[in-house]
Design a binder for these strands. Structure first.
Lengths: 229, 229
DNA sequence: AGGAATAGAGAGCACTGCTCTCTATTCAAG
DNA sequence: CTTGAATAGAGAGCAGTGCTCTCTATTCCT
């Protein structure tokens, strides 16, 4: 079972790769709605029913592509961030945020797939969530490092018991060393970064923002201050 | 031409109404992807080709529904905000933001239609943009009123020349009396309010936020402070 | 009253996701 | 090495989609 050397197993892996590659191109060109199994089959020179040997249905293929896209985004952001000196938290923060935006702008349809309207009912296989966390983890590390380094006494609003509405255990794993008072602001930063990019890509800034990139940089800086980075 | 009294004109208006009503229900139940012209036709007891007498294609019907949804959201938010004393800007701000969230949660598919992945290529007929502005206008008025009332000297980051990347004319119309230094923060607030709701509805808070409502309230308050409301 | 505009019916085209059956190939165990 | 099982793909077919075209009945306007 699952003989990795067999001719069949090899062919299978290659086919799955082909399917995902072609499907990925289709999505990049025409968006998730434009992804048609029949078009994929046509492209790789096979009849449409053959695809069902590899993916039970369209949603399953889409889920696989979502997983890959999260990993692509994550890897891209990790690479950019890794190039910056660990001690320069401000720059790490700015570079990380800009890397997210750059990926989003060069993969608009994939970004929509990840952060736009969810396509299936739910799309929360555990592996997907894990892949989705990669960007968040990078951001969390920066905040952690900066908090530890500066032990700043920056005033944070009266904290209220954050444990009442946040999953403090989960957040503590992403934000080690960061006081709970900061959790709300950290979530705000995460949300606003992706919210800004969505607003830009989805056209909501048309008519009020001429250079979304400049605004984004301002937002990143403002958030850096709010977080004490 | 356009005789509003004629039997035909009356029937036409009624049919358009029926179509939109049925289509709206379909979207509310199954989302924009689940909207099928044939299903609408079936429901109102007419053959599918007849619908093309009223809407040139699916996108045009969708655009009409988007327009209506923007207006429904706008009217709902305006109603809530109007109930608060004009002088109590903090409360007006909180109530307005909560009204947006309440509408979004009771109309999740419509919210996705407006603020999720854009469906056609572009959807920017002028009337739609106008309808979309209603919520923004309410928010802008609150910020204006609070700025004028308090003439606070709250410290805002070095301003940079905002005119270089924002449409200051357009923004000045929405934010009369608000100094340009605040424009970036105002845009941040707008973006974060809708970004938070998107993250909640699209499932990105699963695993880190237990009560999105509580988090939302915190965010609203934090934004209020950032804006000096 | 008669010609023009309109609403709807109905057939049809090209496309979709998906299922089912049937054949050819590879695999793995005797 | 052979033989029976597992697998990949082909091909037909079903039910659904958006949309177009033609044809008929009704309303409108002059």
């Amino acid at each position: 079972m699952a003989n990795i050397e067999g001719e069949r197993a090899k062919h299978r892996a290659a086919q799955i790769d082909s399917i995902k590659r072609v499907a990925s191109h289709l999505i990049a060109e025409k968006g998730a709605d434009g992804l048609s199994l029949r078009a994929v089959a046509r492209e790789i020179g096979v009849v449409s029913s053959a695809l069902y040997r590899y993916f039970a249905n369209r949603d399953e293929l889409l889920t696989a592509l979502i997983y890959d896209a999260y990993n692509d985004l994550g890897a891209s952001v990790e690479r950019s961030e890794a190039r910056i000196s660990r001690s320069d938290c401000r720059r790490r923060w700015a570079v990380t945020c800009r890397a997210v935006r750059r990926w989003a702008r060069s993969h608009p349809h994939e970004f929509s797939l990840l952060y736009g309207t969810p396509v299936p009912g739910y799309r929360a296989p555990k592996t997907t969530i894990e892949a989705a966390s990669r960007v968040v983890i990078v951001m969390g590390e920066i905040l952690s490092d900066s908090t530890i380094a500066s032990s700043h006494g920056r005033s944070v609003r009266r904290s209220r018991d954050v444990a009442a509405f946040l999953d403090v255990d989960g957040l503590a794993r992403i934000l080690p060393g960061v006081p709970e008072d900061f959790y709300v602001r950290a979530l705000m930063a995460w949300t606003l970064i992706f919210g800004s990019i969505s607003f830009e890509l989805f056209g909501h800034y048309v008519g009020s923002v001429n250079s979304p990139g400049r605004l984004f940089d301002e937002v990143v800086e403002e958030l850096g201050e709010l977080l004490g980075i």
